[in-house]
């Protein structure tokens, strides 16, 4: 569906993207992960037909971007971080306008509009002026705009930035639903969002693609120590002593817990979480709670970028 080979983009002497290669299949949702200036937005703009690559080859749905950027524009939906909206227009008027800009006929727009409104959960807002919508709804209008013409590839730059927690949950569903029958690329600074929404992650660092794979694959590749927080029923001393002597546990970091429970963050050799939990049960500790440390993906990311540096 999408083949990127040796993609490089210079701004003057500065290489914003250096020799990046990846493939994305139809139906796949892929996340671009990286710090500011890592090259994510430049890659997205090239895929959207806004920027020309300096070197390399980008093929979307069988069409080479460099050879026929015009032909691609009708097959790609692109949503920048700040949704570009005509605020004086109504939602349906705006979406119809975008449909016309994408070459749709009036009949096609009339058929497609209700589908897109339902898909992006904009029902009931069709006749509202965009300027009066909340930030969350404007983001939805932006997504609706990017799929009104039923593109083969949808590119969403930071689709959840600025949304409140409830809107994030709703937006996650919307983004997941876009993956049906098309490729979706999502970038986000919220690392946990990438892992929850995407099938695969591409990690950018200083213009280079330093890793790609599922969260699990990246965790293994980064060499990040498997960690978990275990809360069990039992005496703190006894649990820490047992954990400290377990062959798969490298370190034990006590955590606060109310009696009769005790908790600790355990650093493991490799991914030994299942074995450790089974052993804890056998040793007579009642498992109350098993948690992953909240910053696990951040750890993976830092590990991968450190490795690349």
């Amino acid at each position: 569906m999408i083949e990127v080979t040796g993609l490089t983009r210079y701004y003057g002497e500065f290489a914003a993207v250096k020799d990046v290669s990846f493939e994305i299949a139809r139906g796949e949702i892929v996340g671009l992960l990286g710090l500011n200036g890592a090259g994510k937005s430049t890659t997205m703009k090239i895929l959207a037909g806004l920027l020309a690559p300096s070197l390399g080859r980008v093929v979307v749905d069988g069409v080479n971007v460099a050879e026929a950027p015009e032909a691609l524009r009708g097959r790609i939906g692109y949503l920048p971080e700040d949704p570009p909206l005509y605020k004086e227009m109504t939602v349906s008027g705006f979406l119809a306008h975008i449909g016309r800009l994408k070459g749709m006929t009036g009949d096609a727009i009339r058929r497609r509009l209700p589908e897109v409104v339902a898909l992006t959960q904009l029902t009931g807002r069709e006749h509202q002026v965009i300027g009066t919508l909340s930030h969350g709804y404007r983001k939805r209008v932006g997504i609706a705009m990017s799929v009104i013409h039923d593109p083969r590839l949808v590119i969403l730059d930071e689709p959840i930035s600025g949304l409140d927690p409830q809107q994030i949950v709703e937006m996650r569903k919307v983004v997941r639903s876009l993956g049906e029958g098309r490729a979706v690329i999502v970038s986000s600074h919220i690392l946990s969002e990438i892992s929850q929404t995407c099938d695969r992650i591409l990690v950018y660092h200083q213009g280079q693609l330093v890793a790609q794979g599922t969260e699990q694959e990246l965790a293994q590749r980064s060499g990040a120590t498997s960690r978990l927080i275990l809360t069990v029923r039992g005496a703190a001393d006894a649990f820490r002593e047992w954990a400290g002597h377990h062959p798969k546990v490298r370190a034990v970091h006590p955590r606060d817990a109310e009696a009769p429970f005790t908790a600790a963050l355990l650093e493991l050799d490799g991914d030994a979480r299942e074995a450790l939990i089974a052993d804890a049960v056998q040793a007579g500790f009642g498992i109350r709670l098993v948690e992953s440390p909240a910053d696990e993906l951040e750890e993976i990311f830092l590990g991968l970028t450190k490795e690349a540096a």
């Binding site: 959207a48 037909g49 806004l50 015009e70 524009r73 920048p80 570009p84 005509y86 975008i98 800009l101």
Partner: peptide
């Protein structure tokens, strides 16, 4: 200024 030029640049309109 409003960033809506991207709508025109990514359109099929010449």
């Amino acid at each position: 200024q409003d960033g809506t030029d991207v709508l025109l640049q990514t359109s099929v309109v010449s």
